[in-house]
Amino acid sequence: MADYLDFVGDPGRDDVEGWLYPTDAHLMSVVNDLQVDRGFRGDVLEIGAYKGKSAILLGFFPEAGESLTVCDIFDSGAPVSDGNARENTAFYPGLLQTDFEKNYLRFHDRLPRVHVGPSEELGEIVAPGSCRLVHIDGGHTYEVARADMETARRALGPAGIVVVDDWSSAHIPGVAMALWERYLTGELIPLAFTKGKFYATWDPAGLTAGEVADAVATRPGIEASGTVRLGRYAAAGVTMTPGDWQRYNAGLRAVYSKLYADGGASAPQRVGF
C-alpha cells in the first residue's frame, strides 16, 4: 500500500485515470489503519469504480476474512435513469470493465468481487451490517446519491465509515443534497473532509473526529488544516502539506506541459488539490 500511495502522489508515474488524489489516498488509509488498530472488522464496498484508481487502494484494506466488493455498470448496457445516462455519456465515454481489471491486476494478484449492474441491486448481494468502509462514487443525481447513502447505512456495521465523493462539486449538487439531508436527520456524524470527499459515520461508539485528526497529524504529506463546526459536531478539513502540494503541483505541470507540447493532446482526467 505504501508503494501505491507514492504512486498516486507522483504525477510522472501515475497513469491510472481517475479522480483519487494524494490527500484522500492518505486519509482513506488513515481511516483504515484506525479501524484495524481498534479491532473493527468488516468488508469494504465501493460504489462506482471507473478505471480502478480508488479500488486499487481499497484492495489493500481487507484483513484476513474480509473482502472488497466493487460495483459499476461499466460497459454492460445495464439500464440507468436518464440523468445517469447523460452523465455517463459526458464524463465516462468508452468505459470498459476490462480497463478496470487490467489496472487493478497491475497492483493485486486477483480481482475483487465485482458486481456489474446498478448500485440499487447491492442490497441483494451485500449483507446488512457486513461492511466497515463504504466509498460512494456512483451516480451523481440526487436520487441515486440518496439511494447509495441508504445502501451504505444498511451495509455498514459497528464503527462503519462512509466516504462520499464529490460532496462539494458545484456541477453535481445532487450529491451534496443527499449528504446534507442525511446529516440533518441528526444521525450522521461527520469526521473529516477534503475538497473531494466527506468522511462520516452513523455509529457514535465508533471512530471520532478527534481520533481522525490526531492520526492525520502523524501522517507525512497531509495535515488537518482547521476544524469546522457543523451544528453539534465538528470535523477537520484535511489538505496536503504545503511542501507536498508544491511538489505534486510541479509534477502535474510537468505532465501537462508534455501532453500539450505537440499541439493539443487531451489532458488526463485528473487535477490536483
Rank of each mutant, 00 (worst) to 15 (best):
residue 50 Y to A: 06
residue 50 Y to I: 04
residue 50 Y to M: 03
residue 52 G to N: 07
residue 54 S to C: 11
residue 54 S to R: 11
residue 54 S to E: 01
residue 54 S to W: 05
residue 55 A to D: 07
residue 58 L to A: 02
residue 60 F to C: 01
residue 61 F to K: 05
residue 61 F to R: 06
residue 61 F to D: 03
residue 61 F to W: 10
residue 63 E to K: 15
residue 68 L to N: 06
residue 69 T to Q: 01
residue 70 V to D: 04
residue 70 V to R: 05
residue 72 D to L: 11
residue 73 I to A: 07
residue 74 F to D: 01
residue 77 G to S: 11
residue 77 G to P: 02
residue 78 A to Y: 12
residue 78 A to T: 07
residue 79 P to H: 15
residue 81 S to I: 09
residue 81 S to M: 08
residue 81 S to N: 04
residue 82 D to Y: 13
residue 82 D to H: 14
residue 85 A to Y: 10
residue 90 A to R: 15
residue 92 Y to H: 11
residue 93 P to G: 12
residue 93 P to K: 15
residue 94 G to E: 05
residue 95 L to W: 08
residue 97 Q to L: 14
residue 99 D to M: 12
residue 100 F to A: 11
residue 100 F to K: 11
residue 100 F to E: 03
residue 100 F to S: 07
residue 102 K to Y: 01
residue 102 K to C: 06
residue 103 N to K: 08
residue 104 Y to A: 02
residue 104 Y to S: 02
residue 104 Y to D: 01
residue 105 L to H: 06
residue 105 L to F: 06
residue 107 F to N: 07
residue 110 R to S: 13
residue 110 R to W: 09
residue 111 L to W: 01
residue 113 R to S: 06
residue 114 V to I: 15
residue 114 V to M: 10
residue 117 G to I: 09
residue 118 P to F: 13
residue 121 E to L: 15
residue 121 E to W: 07
residue 123 G to K: 05
residue 123 G to Y: 04
residue 124 E to Y: 01
residue 126 V to D: 04
residue 126 V to Y: 02
residue 126 V to F: 00
residue 127 A to I: 07
residue 127 A to L: 13
residue 129 G to K: 13
residue 132 R to F: 09
residue 132 R to E: 09
residue 136 I to F: 14
residue 137 D to G: 14
residue 137 D to N: 11
residue 139 G to L: 14
residue 140 H to P: 02
residue 140 H to L: 08
residue 142 Y to H: 12
residue 144 V to N: 10
residue 147 A to H: 08
residue 149 M to K: 08
residue 150 E to Y: 05
residue 151 T to R: 15
residue 152 A to M: 09
residue 152 A to D: 04
residue 154 R to W: 04
residue 155 A to K: 08
residue 156 L to S: 03
residue 157 G to V: 11
residue 158 P to I: 03
residue 159 A to K: 12
residue 160 G to D: 10
residue 161 I to S: 02
residue 161 I to K: 04
residue 161 I to T: 15
residue 161 I to F: 02
residue 162 V to I: 13
residue 167 W to M: 05
residue 168 S to L: 10
residue 169 S to I: 13
residue 169 S to G: 01
residue 169 S to N: 09
residue 170 A to N: 00
residue 170 A to G: 00
residue 171 H to C: 09
residue 171 H to W: 08
residue 173 P to Y: 09
residue 175 V to A: 08
residue 175 V to W: 01
residue 176 A to H: 06
residue 176 A to S: 11
residue 179 L to F: 04
residue 179 L to Q: 07
residue 181 E to G: 13
residue 181 E to Y: 01
